[in-house]
């Protein structure tokens, strides 16, 4: 499935309540102060709901920055354009 990267960015922006323009390859648990453990769970659920996928447990703890999120979504057959 090919989706626009904007849609992915919007998911993160909604969960953390920040401007979508702030989301990019530098976005990570270390650079976004709103990204705590509970918001992380919300993020995981939001991604699963938005893209209709089911992460493995390992993937849910792994996706701690934007490039990793893209990589793990790639493992679920989601590509970005």
């Amino acid at each position: 499935m090919k989706i626009s990267e904007e849609r992915l960015k919007q998911v993160l922006a909604d969960v953390f309540g920040i401007d979508v323009r702030q989301i990019g390859s530098a976005t990570s648990v270390d650079t976004v102060k709103e990204w705590d453990s509970l918001k992380h769970l919300n993020l995981v659920l939001a991604l699963e709901q938005q893209f209709d996928i089911t992460f493995t447990v390992e993937q849910t703890v792994e996706i701690l920055n934007y490039p990793l999120i893209k990589a793990v979504l790639g493992e679920h057959g989601i590509e970005f354009c």
Binding site: Q10, V11, A13, D14, V15, F16, G17, I18, N42, L45, A46, Q49, Q50
Partner: peptide
């Protein structure tokens, strides 16, 4: 009415 849209309202309320 997606989870993301609820999140956006929630964030708008928080901020």
């Amino acid at each position: 009415s997606s989870y993301g849209a609820y999140g956006a309202v929630s964030s708008a309320l928080d901020h």
